[in-house]
Amino acid sequence: MLRKIGIDAIEVRKVQQLSEIDGLIIPGGESTTIVKLLTRFEFVDHLRERVNCGMALWGTCAGMIVIARELADPYPIPLNLIDISVARNYFGRQVDSFEAELHIEGINGDPMRAVFIRAPIVQTVGEGVKQIASTDDGQAVAVKKGRVLATSFHPELTGDTRLHTLFLKLAKEAQEDPRQNSSTAVNPSSI
């Protein structure tokens, strides 16, 4: 998807690579696995520092869970990189997974087709966190604060690159003006 919009994307497997990038996407997957491996390979502190210094960050599905402040479940312990609380597997198990049309603030044109797979939902948002897409009953499924973006669904599973383009803008901002992340919800003492 990123290569489709002309980005020289890399897969980050080592913590040193965090210094080489302006934006990081934490993709779908299993949030327990992702948190475990981030911790085991000592990513957490460096990632937090990079986000505080203005790096753009986007969590989709499991990625949203990983960067949340707080979860409805006791486990895994999220990284608190955006001030939202999240419930995992909110819509149910795989047999309950679905697609829906979503209007997203900042995305022009037709609604986006969003794929929800064992998807989480945002239950509460902190100050300054903007809800940019919602379910029919008003619960947030996409939020943004500064250069940090979180989505419940998987934009990478459709061919639609509009959200990726929006994220690219955030990463470009980060490149040009590093020290400007308003993601100051971070409070290490609560971790």
Partner: peptide, 16 residues
């Protein structure tokens, strides 16, 4: 069921 929703879960397991 839906093809993309079904295959999508497997996509999320990649590398695991």
């Amino acid at each position: 069921g839906d093809w993309r929703v079904k295959g999508g879960l497997a996509q999320m397991l990649k590398g695991g």
